[in-house]
Design a protein around this nucleic acid. Structure first.
Lengths: 215, 215
DNA sequence: CTACGTATATTCGCTTACGAGTAATCGTCG
DNA sequence: CGACGATTACTCGTAAGCGAATATACGTAG
């Protein structure tokens, strides 16, 4: 019962917000989402879609209004959003906007274990990342400019945000790279030695063992 | 068969990297991780830990070396990392560092559905977020400064990155907030009207319906 | 010395996630 | 007009995620 929301998956929020416009069957929801480009950030997983819709219905946030076959197509169930569903969507939106959540990225995970590789290799890898990031920034800027004259600003903020974060990341990687390339990053020698020998210097050994009482 | 890694969960990488230092039993891995503060970014889920370790063993990345009880404690299994496991950890690290992955945040999801709330409320919510972000930035800076004289830089990069991203986000939210407060954000009136009436103006209606062919 | 809180160490089983499979219809190109 | 690929629409089974329960030992305050 740790579920703060009856249905946790963010796909559920997307589903609710499209269903607010008019009743739909699941596949149609997916189509609308896809048409609005929401699937670029979050590709639609078919398995999850139906699970999520069923769970929303189970919790009374959606209700089935019509379940019939039309022209012999496979049976479809059309869902309408309930009052509770509308409230849930609004409340969820409020929470998402107002409260920052710590969401660890896989890059952070990478950084936290980069000590396992040699510093020169890390430098090379980060250079590659830096390259790819710059390309992405370019592409994102371009895409945004295209959309600016098709869509109102309101529908572009999330792309603008994504771009800003991409730029920030590119800048950060760039600056770390500079330190590594110029050799101003501290303890480079220790790091290199550690990686060659596979053993940490004694003072760091203690840190690595911290929190262990056994043996 | 969509699994690019035998065990997808990032916890598996953490497990491999601690097990490289010396053989351990699962609970001990968790303790070491906790002692190193890795659990702040990623709180350890007990259920997942044992699932992940078992899967790593199943795929030959870890192997059980000893399974006995000591002093009557519940039975423990000690795992050693295999050569394949070592390779997997290195290769995974390489990938994480070199290749940016699009990882949509929940804030992005919030932004993409903020049209469902009134602009004034959104402003208030973002103000709250901005406040909280600033506090977090402060706290993170402080924590980093503390750690700087205890830990070598190598073990702090991921915190530095997290801080940089936090700052970037704070800056972005701040600038959006300015636009909203000063009324320079476009279509504020349309947005407000839409929310009061619950109906989009006809030109946007078309967009919202795009991608639908039915009825 | 005993009762109780805390640390150790793991298992169990419910829920979710999601890929792959299925099956019908529609459009279209020859 | 018929074959075939794309689109529509969904189901099912496997695997993963994870909370909560379990069970023992240890420390310590009364």
């Amino acid at each position: 019962m740790g579920a703060r929301r009856p249905v946790e998956n963010l796909l559920a929020l997307a589903v609710l917000t499209v269903a607010v416009q008019r009743p739909m069957h699941p596949y149609e929801m997916a189509s609308v989402l896809r048409a609005r480009g929401k699937d670029e950030d979050m590709p639609i997983k078919w398995g999850s879609l139906y699970t999520v819709v069923r769970n929303l219905a189970k919790h009374g946030l959606l209700e089935a209004v019509e379940s019939g076959r039309q022209g012999g197509r496979p049976e479809r169930t059309v869902y309408r959003v309930t009052e509770a569903g509308r409230r849930e969507a609004e409340d969820w939106t409020r929470e998402l906007l107002s409260t920052p959540r710590r969401e660890p990225s896989s890059f952070e995970a990478g950084l936290s274990v980069m000590g396992g590789l040699a510093p020169d290799e890390v430098t090379a890898l980060l250079r590659q990342r830096s390259q790819l990031l710059q390309e992405r920034v370019e592409a994102a800027r371009h895409a945004l400019d295209q959309q600016r004259d098709e869509l109102p600003r309101l529908f572009l903020v999330e792309s603008e945000y994504a771009l800003a974060m991409l730029e920030a990341q590119a800048a950060w990687v760039g600056s770390l790279l500079t330190e590594l390339a110029e050799g101003t990053f501290p303890d480079l020698e220790t790091w290199r030695a550690f990686h060659v020998s596979g053993r940490m210097p004694p003072d760091l050994e203690a840190l690595a063992e911290r929190g262990t009482t056994e043996e």
